Simulated scan of single mutants.
Amino acid sequence: MKALIQRVSSASVDIAGQRHGEIGPGILLLLGVEKTDTEAAADKLLSKALNYRIFADSEGKMNLNLQQTEGGLLIVSQFTLVADTRKGLRPGFSSGATPQQGENLYNHFVAKARELHHDIGTGQFGADMQVSLVNDGPVTFMLEA
């Protein structure tokens, strides 16, 4: 399981021209699910994302996590994160989860996030989404469980 996290000033996701989710300052999390992933891996990755210290403290150092800053978390499924790009000019997706497994783990990740954090926005699994963000920094990290 992979999560690309970006520290944002704001982020939103639209589906079919309608706003589906949005946050102010916080983290945009793009989530990729692989066929070997489990709920335990999802829980571990979520904990890491919520506690990863990427926000500035009073001295300007990245010492604070999302929960300490009470920022928003926008979770968007992104199948292409699990692509194998090592060979050729076309990505391979053989390590990706089936649509059913991917959706189940995405929904589990979102449900756990809502239990642990107050400001959660989401995309919609499998939808054609338009994601907008203002990357703060820019600060971007790839997390893996």
Rank of each mutant, 00 (worst) to 15 (best):
T98E: 07
G17M: 10
F109C: 02
D119N: 13
T38H: 08
N104K: 01
F79L: 10
G32V: 12
I120P: 13
Q124N: 06
L45Y: 12
K48C: 04
R53N: 03
I75V: 14
V33T: 14
A11H: 07
G121L: 09
L81W: 05
R19M: 02
S58H: 02
V13F: 06
A127T: 11
E59F: 05
T69R: 00
A16E: 15
K44W: 04
R90T: 14
G26R: 12
M62G: 03
A83W: 08
R114D: 03
T80C: 01
R7W: 06
G102F: 01
H117Y: 07
A16C: 07
G60Y: 03
Q100R: 00
L29K: 13
D57E: 00
S132E: 14
L116P: 09
Q124A: 08
F79Y: 15
S94Q: 15
L73A: 05
S77A: 11
E59Y: 04
D43F: 05
G21E: 12
N63G: 02
V8N: 07
T122Y: 10
M129A: 13
T36I: 15
K112M: 13
A40N: 13
N63F: 01
S95N: 14
G121P: 09
D14V: 09
V8W: 08
L50Y: 11
V134D: 06
A49D: 10
H108A: 07
K35L: 15
S58L: 03
S94W: 13
L116I: 07
F109M: 05
S94E: 15
H118F: 06
V33F: 12
A41I: 06
Q67N: 02
A40S: 13
D119S: 08
